[in-house]
């Protein structure tokens, strides 16, 4: 199967399956699956989102906008984006490296390594924050050295970035590993045998195959980086206008009984997530377009 996984880009993948009898369900089954999965979607995802927006606009557009352009909110948005912009690329590079090593090679302790990569997910966010306090806090391992040299890690931007890195650590890697395992390594081996260098092989052979997985990984990683609350809350210091991220700002507003403003700030996070999806769609369309131009007869 690996040989044929090269290009399945299109505006809608569904067409590929729905056009053939062999890959189509009977209408009853189709509508059953659609019905169940969409009900599940509505109850568990759509309703909470609608609740957020309804609350956000309860006091009208004006309150909504005021809540967002307030200096504290703006600085929180900036800090949130900064943390994501630093941590997502780092975890992306790591994810690709880890997936390459794990999926393309056999070695002992592989399952152990994969499980270690999973570990940050199961660490309670509070503990994820606490570990950095134990390391860099005034009473931590490096505490006195840091304070002697007047370097601030926790209760400052570096601590927030570290905590974000930690909680979003596995996303790209765990997205790519099963995908690259499913694809095997024949294509890459063929490329190498034909004289391609390592990076060329990765760029021209592997990357086109894994780009959807990669993109999902980045999207999830980014969404989580922006939404993380627990771990960041421990290392942030909560200084208004300086070390508050957007999720922390939401909590503050909520605790001030400014429900509408709190949900307005929360809706920004939801919108940021939607923006990444719009970018994904745009990339998809562009890729489909260029593919169609270069290779008309292969377009499905």
């Amino acid at each position: 199967m690996a040989g044929a996984t090269t290009f399945h880009i299109g505006i809608d993948h569904a067409h590929r399956f729905e056009s053939k009898a062999a890959t189509r369900e009977t209408p009853v089954v189709k509508w059953l699956i659609l019905g169940i999965s969409l009900t599940f979607f509505v109850v568990f995802l759509l309703m909470p989102l609608i609740a957020v927006f309804v609350e956000a606009f309860r006091k009208g557009w004006e309150t909504y906008l005021t809540a967002l352009v307030e200096p504290d909110a703006l600085s929180a948005i900036k800090l949130t984006i900064l943390a994501a912009v630093i941590s997502v690329p780092l975890n992306l590079v790591f994810g690709v490296c880890a997936a390459w090593a794990i999926a393309k090679f056999e070695f002992r302790g592989k399952q152990f390594l994969i499980t270690l990569i999973d570990l940050p997910f199961s660490v309670s966010p509070v503990i994820a924050g606490l570990v950095f306090v134990l390391l860099f806090g005034a009473q931590g391992w490096f505490g006195s050295w840091l304070s002697d040299n007047d370097i601030r890690i926790i209760f400052a931007v570096p601590g927030i970035v570290l905590a974000t890195l930690f909680v979003t650590f596995p996303f790209v890697a765990r997205e790519l590993i099963p995908l690259m395992q499913a694809q095997g390594r024949e294509e890459e081996e063929a490329a190498v045998v034909l004289g391609a260098r390592g990076f060329q092989t990765f760029w021209y052979v592997t990357l086109p195959n894994i780009k959807w997985g990669l993109m999902y990984g980045v999207i999830l990683c980014n969404a989580r980086a922006m939404g993380e609350f627990g771990a960041v809350s421990v290392v942030s210091g909560h200084i208004r206008g300086q070390t508050n991220t957007l999720p922390l700002h939401v909590e503050i507003l909520y605790n001030e009984y400014q429900f509408a403003a709190a949900f307005a700030a929360a809706s920004v996070l939801a919108v940021l997530a939607l923006v990444t999806l719009v970018i994904k769609t745009w990339v998809e369309n562009r890729a489909a377009q260029s593919h169609k131009d270069s290779n008309r007869d292969d377009a499905s």
Partner: peptide, 12 residues
């Protein structure tokens, strides 16, 4: 919207 649970802060 599938990714929403990540983007919303857990408290929200």
């Amino acid at each position: 919207l599938v990714d929403l649970p990540f983007a919303l802060p857990t408290a929200v």
